[in-house]
């Protein structure tokens, strides 16, 4: 070992010239794509809000409008499938503005050779999910591509909903003092898909939490003043909280001990070296609620099956705007930051 250390270090990172998987992770790379490519090209007041939906005023009424693409592998996973996900995902993006979803579109990109039986199965599942959420799939499109040009099937759904009068919900509306409410356990969907992908078996199967949240939101709105809502899908709860803290310019302080995580999910995350805070959910929401109303809203959430395990996990503060801090299990504090790209399992 040399005694006078010659310091060495890798050359500075060159900006990427091509799309990498991390660009679709919901983390910092995704944010960079939006900031550097999409926003400058499409710039308008609706998009600039960076909400999961645009709320558009038409003839005195307000319409929520959103779209989402679904590319999950495997197509069928414990607790759901790509069809159910495609309906619930768009219903939930609408619901996160407080809107009552009305109807959806569905577009299918199918790979040559894809079994019609599987297509029928996905379609029936979409129909069931739409009926459960009380929305119609009112229009659609189909394209078929050469074998190898897509992975079996991709689904895109778009949706519109009506925003009730007086409801003003946006990721940028959280205020210091607001309580942070989470509707239930985190990480179920991501770990259901991942454990199937990695061929892991656990004592209790982990099921996806895919579910429509529009009725839960309706119940919350009736119980109190909701400032911000988000469904922490890709990127997980950690990502949603960081985005909301940044958009609202508030600090967020949460307590790890108050965040419900299912035992099997925690175990799977430990095994795979992942942090449940950044694992996807498909039937959960996190919301910033006026402090005085937090108790009533929590009670209303717990009345509904999709909010039975709801909890108050922290609050918004005026200090450290844009930064999320978490009290750890042993009483220390850490920063919760947007992940860079995909979560990577560590070596040891």
């Amino acid at each position: 070992m040399p005694n006078d250390f010659t310091l060495s270090c890798p050359p500075p990172f060159t900006p990427r010239k091509t799309v990498v998987l991390g660009h679709g992770s919901g983390g910092k790379l995704s944010a960079q794509l939006i900031r550097e490519i999409f926003l400058p090209a499409f710039d308008n007041p609706w998009l600039r809000k960076l909400d999961d939906q645009a709320v558009i005023s038409i003839d005195g009424g307000r319409i929520a409008f959103t779209t989402d693409a679904f590319v999950v592998t495997p197509l069928f996973f414990p607790g759901g499938d790509i069809g159910e996900l495609a309906v619930n995902g768009t219903v939930n993006d609408l619901a996160m503005s407080g809107a009552r979803p009305v109807c959806l579109s569905a577009a299918f990109i199918l790979e040559e050779g894809f079994p019609l039986e599987d297509l029928a199965r996905v379609t029936q599942s979409m129909a069931r999910a739409a009926a459960a959420a009380g929305v119609a799939i009112a229009t659609g499109d189909t394209k078929v591509v050469n074998k190898g040009s897509a992975d079996r099937m991709f689904v895109t759904t778009a949706g519109i909903g009506v925003v009730p009068e007086g409801v003003e919900i946006s990721a940028s509306n959280a205020r210091p003092g607001d309580r942070v409410l989470l509707s239930g356990t985190i990480g179920d969907h991501g770990m259901a898909v991942m454990s199937r992908r990695e061929g892991l078996e656990f004592d209790g199967a982990i099921l996806s939490d895919t579910a429509p949240l529009d009725r839960l939101v309706e119940a919350m709105l009736a119980a109190g003043e909701i400032h911000a809502l988000r469904d922490p899908t890709r990127g997980g709860l950690g990502t949603s909280l960081c985005e909301m803290a940044a958009a609202s310019k508030v600090g967020v302080e949460i307590d790890a001990r108050l965040i419900p995580v299912r035992e099997e999910v925690r175990a799977a995350c430990e095994l795979l070296g992942l942090d449940p805070l950044f694992v996807a959910n498909e039937g959960k929401l996190v919301s910033f609620v006026r402090a005085e109303d937090a108790g009533a809203v929590l009670a209303a959430m717990r009345q509904r099956p999709e909010g039975r395990e709801a909890a108050i996990i922290g609050e918004a503060v005026a200090a450290h705007p844009g930064m999320v801090l978490m009290k750890t299990e042993i009483g220390g504090t850490r920063v919760v930051d947007l992940p860079f790209g995909e979560q990577l399992p560590r070596i040891c």
Binding site: P10, P11, I347
Partner: peptide
């Protein structure tokens, strides 16, 4: 590779970049 080696930059990019190419 183990997961976290994918992002370590060499002289010309990382394994993610090579995957993308």
């Amino acid at each position: 590779s183990f997961g976290d080696m994918l992002r370590v930059p060499g002289s010309r990019g990382d394994l993610f970049q090579i995957k993308a190419e």
